[in-house]
Design a binder for these strands. Structure first.
Lengths: 334, 334
DNA sequence: TTGTAAGCGTTATCAC
DNA sequence: GTGATAACGCTTACAA
């Protein structure tokens, strides 16, 4: 079942069938409708491989993420796929894990599939310590658009859409301070583009309010509820005093709430807790956790819109920033 | 940059280059290594479209799910993608929502992309009330393998891997009863293949223990924490008495825990709560929610293994059942 | 062991 | 408005 069968049955040439297929106006209405009838009768579907071969595109973009089961990235993938499909593009998904070697390998693999663009979801794709490790992305961007969701890399052909994490954390810390908190513990998971921005917001807010930034109040912790709870318990046991906990991820905040329960601390009176991402987890606890909505849907919509503009030859800024929203729930009073 | 360039530089024919590319043994070592050198030097990558056109496959499978941001389905997609990639297959993802018309439309769309197989993740794809609405799947299965993850449809070319939801719920209810619970509330979200099996397990266990199945103890509820909490509050207010809550989804169980907190009920003493899927949510609450691990990873691994066997012409059972695990945490003592 | 040549099913460029 | 025909880049009989 191909274009020849259709052309034969309709008594026209394959060129005409192709014109009908592609909505070319240079076809008489009579011919057009006859060809369409034959197509329907035969249940003809154009072969995407042949089309891809001729046009060198299959209207497909590669989406890479470190872990599609992570709630934040799962949402990103959902929105990206939805927006791409609305624009007539398919998504090839690839979960890479966090090792650089795998990220590079899968990146090359997707490139070899001749995707029309690459979307890297999550800030884990930009190495912030060793800049040359990002060269594979920069080089690829010479050949096809590379979109970064919540990551930033300044090079031609790379377009970043980022959430203003630094400002979000600044605002949270600032409001906590202004409401009287003085010993704000900052717990974070990862050393990434986004992670560093968040931490900077915390530091800047303290500095702006004349509060010394204490290293012992800044702790790294695995992205894990139990680990966060244990960390806080051991910190408290070691005599560290804190009246608020800011976290770079809701899972850590859930751990903080469990810590507060274990110590019979009243939230927010004895301890304020702030999460990040405003995920389902922040709604599971009692009290519910105040958290930062990072506008992942807006981020993804913007990313796809920008991509479509790039495809259309439009001028797109290399970096688009979207503001986050603080969602006040029950673990803060700010 | 194509196979002709390589053949010219290497001084061989394109057929030989193709043989090297495909690991055909009928090439002398000398020729092979020379061709490979040239390929590397030129940075040659075969064109997947041309290959696809000739072979009528691009080693790609379509994955459909109703909502990739749902925690359960997000995990399914993660495992499916990982296993497929390990077997050299790409995944085209498509989130359909729950409307039949969209499911059909996207199904056709993926078929038109000439995927090598379709994987339908989640029990939402099998219509259980109107069998003829599944015909589009059954017809497609005549042309390519269709794999169902946690759904079942008995037709040639359709291979189902399901979790034994009925047995899981039976065991939970049976243990609750044997530990003394008599008024077990059952709250469920959806009327699906999997949903009906779960409910049947609950009913069967009650019947087997000589406890009458009461319709007022079986309630439907939106998949939503707040809705579940409100439902239980209004049921309790209306005088309904229950000493245990079984749910078809962890989100409902979280709502039940919040209800217990609101009423200052001790868990599990005053109220036992059981979730389903053993998702991250069930670890967020205090106390943590006992839940059923539906072995989503095993389900996905088995699905992909079966698919590879189908591709290889092997004989694969139309239905594979995997047992669930009850994970005892803090909201039960059974 | 290697080469030649015929497909695979489109799109696009010419003529007419 | 329509029809030949040449790409597109690969795989694979069939020949040598």
């Amino acid at each position: 079942m191909n274009i020849y069968d259709v052309s034969a049955k309709a008594g026209v040439s394959i060129a005409t069938v192709s014109r009908v297929l592609n909505g070319n106006p240079n076809v008489s209405d009579k011919t057009r409708s006859r060809v369409m009838e034959v197509m329907n009768a035969l249940g003809y579907t154009p072969n995407v491989f042949a089309r891809g071969l001729g046009l060198n595109t299959m209207k497909t973009v590669g989406i890479m993420c470190s872990d599609s089961s992570d709630p934040y990235l799962a949402h990103a993938i959902y929105y990206l796929e939805r927006e791409l499909r609305a624009n007539g593009y398919d998504s090839i998904l690839c979960c890479t894990g966090s090792k650089l070697i795998n990220k590079r390998q899968y990146f090359e693999l997707l490139l070899s599939k001749r995707v029309d663009a690459m979307i890297l979801a999550g800030s884990k794709f930009v190495e912030i310590d060793s800049a040359e490790d990002n060269n594979y992305i920069i080089e690829a961007a010479a050949d096809l658009p590379v979109m970064l969701v919540n990551g930033f890399l300044d090079a031609p052909g790379i377009y970043s859409t980022v959430c203003d994490d630094r400002d979000a954390m600044y605002q949270v810390a600032d409001r906590l301070i202004k409401s009287g908190r003085r010993r704000i513990l900052y717990v974070y998971t990862s050393h990434s583009y986004s992670g560093e921005n968040k931490k900077r917001g915390y530091r800047d807010a303290l500095a702006a309010n004349g509060i010394p930034v204490r290293d012992d109040l800044i702790c790294q912790c695995g992205k894990n509820i139990a680990a966060a709870k244990e960390l806080l318990i051991s910190l408290a046991d070691s005599g560290l005093d804190f009246d608020a906990v800011m976290t770079s991820d809701d899972s850590l905040a859930v751990g903080a709430v469990k810590f507060a329960h274990a110590r019979a601390l009243d939230m927010p009176k004895d301890l304020a807790v702030v999460g990040y991402n405003n995920s389902m987890m922040s709604y599971c606890t009692d009290p519910e956790i105040s958290s930062v909505d990072t506008k992942i849907e807006a981020l993804c919509i913007t990313t796809v819109q920008s991509l479509m503009q790039v495809f259309g030859g439009g001028d797109v800024p290399r970096k688009t920033t979207i503001a986050a929203d603080f969602v006040q729930k029950q673990t803060t009073d700010i």
